[in-house]
């Protein structure tokens, strides 16, 4: 984990003396790649800022708006409860992360630090579920949601099926393994029970891995499309991806409005990324060592 924890830092310093021409070549490549990754978003933003007399499509393509306006944003904002979608997404992501990380770290502790009959069986059972694509469980999941749990068309339908994650259990198990046994033994001698040891002795020591698991779970939850679009019917309950799909259906005639909606959906995750970049990157690549 330590190697992936800081991939955004400058990397190690090579002893090569910087030659200007050489660096220029590398900056050229870097810029070229940035154009490929950023230009689509930039174009989206420019389109969202375009006024009614600006051409959205055409040859040659027009990139910059001639009369920039925020009218598209206000129109989308007034016609669709984007703010609600955002709150729904946040609610689902926050609850999913809390439940998932708690349940995963509870399960990871005995798998890392205790000996008990059946440990191997449980371990391999968890491993096997890693292979099963979640999409395969959607049909019975749908029937469960409608007939058994009756949480169809509520946000709980998005939360409960995402609580179990073998991936997070393995990630946290690896982290617990690095905690010295002496620490646990000392706490036991002091008379702490296992739940207490798990919560106040072990959990604080594996904070980086918990953050990793949390961010990974949050991004997955935030961007989920297929399952939420199966579960949610009421517009006020839509999450951002489902809401954006609906928005696209509503404004097929004017691409400026669709672009404005897309930009508004991208902004929150972009802000989160800027502030928690380190965890984002470590979280999503943590699987290598996990």
């Amino acid at each position: 984990m330590s190697t992936v924890a800081e991939p955004m830092s400058t990397g190690r310093i090579r002893s090569v003396r910087p030659a200007w021409t050489r660096n220029l070549f590398w900056y050229g490549l870097l810029l070229l790649a940035s154009i490929v990754t950023v230009l689509p978003f930039l174009w989206l933003l420019m389109t969202a800022l375009k006024g009614p007399s600006d051409a959205v499509f055409g040859f040659p393509p027009q990139f910059l708006p001639r009369e920039p306006t925020l009218a598209n944003f206000t129109r989308v904002w007034n016609q669709l409860p984007i703010w609600r979608f955002f709150v729904n997404s946040l609610f689902v992501a926050a609850l999913t992360v809390t439940l998932n990380v708690t349940v995963s770290s509870l399960a990871a502790y005995p798998l890392a630090k205790m000996n008990f009959p059946g440990r191997e069986v449980i371990f391999y059972l968890l491993l096997a579920t890693l292979i099963v694509p979640a999409e395969l469980t959607f049909i019975p999941g749908y029937i469960l949601a409608v007939q058994v749990f009756q949480y169809y068309d509520t946000l709980w339908a998005l939360i409960f099926p995402s609580v179990f994650s073998a991936f997070n259990i393995f990630l946290l198990r690896q982290a617990y393994k690095t905690v010295p046994n002496d620490l646990i033994d000392a706490a036991r001698i002091d008379g702490a029970n296992e739940l207490r040891i798990w919560w106040s002795v072990l959990t604080p020591t594996i904070r980086p891995s918990l953050a990793t698991a949390a961010v990974f779970t949050a991004v997955t939850s935030w961007n989920a499309l297929l399952w939420p679009s199966l579960m949610l019917r009421t517009r006020e309950l839509y999450t951002l991806p489902v809401g954006l799909m609906a928005l696209r259906g509503m404004f097929t005639a004017d691409f400026r409005l669709i672009a404005a909606g897309a930009v508004m959906v991208i902004i929150p995750i972009l802000i989160a990324f800027i502030f928690a970049q380190r965890y984002f990157v470590a979280g999503l690549s943590g699987a290598v060592k996990g």
Partner: peptide, 9 residues
């Protein structure tokens, strides 16, 4: 950035 922005956008 493309990794985190989500398939719909």
């Amino acid at each position: 950035i493309p990794v985190i922005t989500g398939a719909v956008a």
